Amino acid sequence: MLVCYCLAISSLKNAEHQNNMDSKGPSLYAAGASVDMSRSIEEDSLVDGPLISADALHSAIRREFQTVPTPCHAGLLSLLHVVYVVLSVCVALLCVLEFGQVEVCGSILGNVRGDSVILFGKACLWVLVQLFTGCVQHHHSRARSRGYLRFYRQMQGLKQLPLTVHSTGNVLLLVVLAARLSLTVHTYMLLIILGLELLVALPCLLYYTVKVMKFNRERAAPDVSQEEHLHNFSIASLQTETGFREGSRLEELVEKQADLIEYLKQHNTLLSKRLLNLTAQH
């Protein structure tokens, strides 16, 4: 009897324990299901949230074309150069060689010699050319940072040419001064150097002005966008632009790739900022 009583008690406890587990099981399953449901709802809310439209994103990323304003500076420098040479010829003929009224030159120049006035003017003109070169370098560097790497490289030698010509003219003038020639020969040599300098520097400035005006008129997209457009039609053209082949200059290729990487870094930084702003607005 005692054994039967113990077996009955143990069976009752097992039944109660089984009933408790059955009563708690659905709630745990429900809780787990609710957690999964909430997670899926949160993930769906992130995916199904308001997305940025492609038009709004494209309009935010697209940057307006900025022209290079240096043609005005080049035209003004060319005009000043022509005026300087004309005035130098007048001073040399009228005041140095005394082909005109000496009293008029004395009243205008005072005690300063005519050739000294020409040299002072040449020094001032060289300073203006130096300022022009610095201004051109600044604006071309900005165009380079906007992605116009091909334009920057095409104009790299041309923008330095006027300064090189004027510096070479200064060296020739120093040689003439050091030679201690007669007054007549000295004056004619000075005028010849100024004339040759004008004949070389003026076409360079005019050619530079035409190239920059053509660039401003075309309003082309950055080089990266142009390469992407060409890539849609021909993959070979993109490989010739970025790949190294026999006969090409490795230094130029490395510099071009460095410029491209620098531009892409700046572009990605700007893109991230504008994406954050658009996300905050939406």
Score class of each variant (00 low, 15 high):
residue 40 S to Y: 03
residue 112 V to N: 01
residue 239 Q to L: 09
residue 64 E to N: 13
residue 63 R to E: 15
residue 108 I to R: 03
residue 96 V to C: 10
residue 274 R to Y: 01
residue 69 P to C: 02
residue 52 I to Q: 05
residue 223 D to E: 03
residue 76 L to M: 06
residue 204 C to W: 01
residue 113 R to M: 09
residue 83 V to G: 01
residue 205 L to M: 15
residue 22 D to K: 05
residue 36 D to P: 00
residue 87 L to F: 06
residue 43 E to A: 14
residue 102 V to M: 06
residue 124 C to Y: 07
residue 27 S to D: 14
residue 180 R to K: 08
residue 114 G to H: 00
residue 114 G to K: 02
residue 200 V to W: 05
residue 117 V to I: 13
residue 24 K to L: 14
residue 146 R to W: 07
residue 278 L to E: 08
residue 269 T to P: 00
residue 61 I to P: 00
residue 45 S to M: 06
residue 132 F to Q: 14
residue 150 R to L: 10
residue 130 Q to V: 07
residue 273 K to F: 07
residue 254 V to P: 02
residue 224 V to A: 14
residue 257 Q to Y: 05
residue 107 S to Y: 07
residue 24 K to T: 13
residue 89 V to L: 05
residue 39 R to F: 11
residue 211 K to Q: 15
residue 217 R to P: 00
residue 229 H to Y: 09
residue 231 H to I: 02
residue 164 T to W: 08
residue 42 E to W: 04
residue 26 P to Y: 11
residue 256 K to W: 05
residue 276 L to Q: 14
residue 281 Q to Y: 03
residue 151 F to M: 13
residue 203 P to F: 03
residue 56 A to Q: 11
residue 37 M to C: 11
residue 178 A to D: 12
residue 48 D to Y: 10
residue 23 S to T: 11
residue 262 E to H: 08
residue 125 L to V: 00
residue 161 L to Y: 04
residue 124 C to R: 12
residue 250 L to W: 08
residue 95 C to K: 02
residue 55 D to W: 01
residue 242 T to P: 00
residue 64 E to W: 00
residue 39 R to S: 13
residue 248 S to L: 09
residue 136 V to L: 15
residue 4 C to Y: 11
residue 64 E to P: 07
residue 241 E to W: 05
residue 96 V to R: 09
residue 189 M to G: 13
residue 171 V to L: 14
residue 195 G to P: 02
residue 276 L to D: 15
residue 28 L to W: 04
residue 222 P to Q: 02
residue 204 C to E: 09
residue 149 L to K: 08
residue 181 L to D: 05
residue 61 I to S: 00
residue 35 V to P: 00
residue 137 Q to W: 05
residue 199 L to V: 06
residue 127 V to W: 08
residue 14 N to F: 11
residue 193 I to K: 03
residue 13 K to H: 08
residue 191 L to V: 11
residue 202 L to Q: 04
residue 216 N to C: 08
residue 62 R to N: 14
residue 14 N to Q: 13
residue 19 N to D: 13
residue 171 V to Y: 09
residue 157 G to W: 00
residue 257 Q to C: 12
residue 26 P to I: 10
residue 66 Q to R: 08
residue 54 A to R: 08
residue 76 L to P: 02
residue 278 L to M: 12
residue 7 L to S: 04
residue 153 R to L: 07
residue 212 V to A: 04
residue 72 C to P: 00
residue 91 V to P: 01
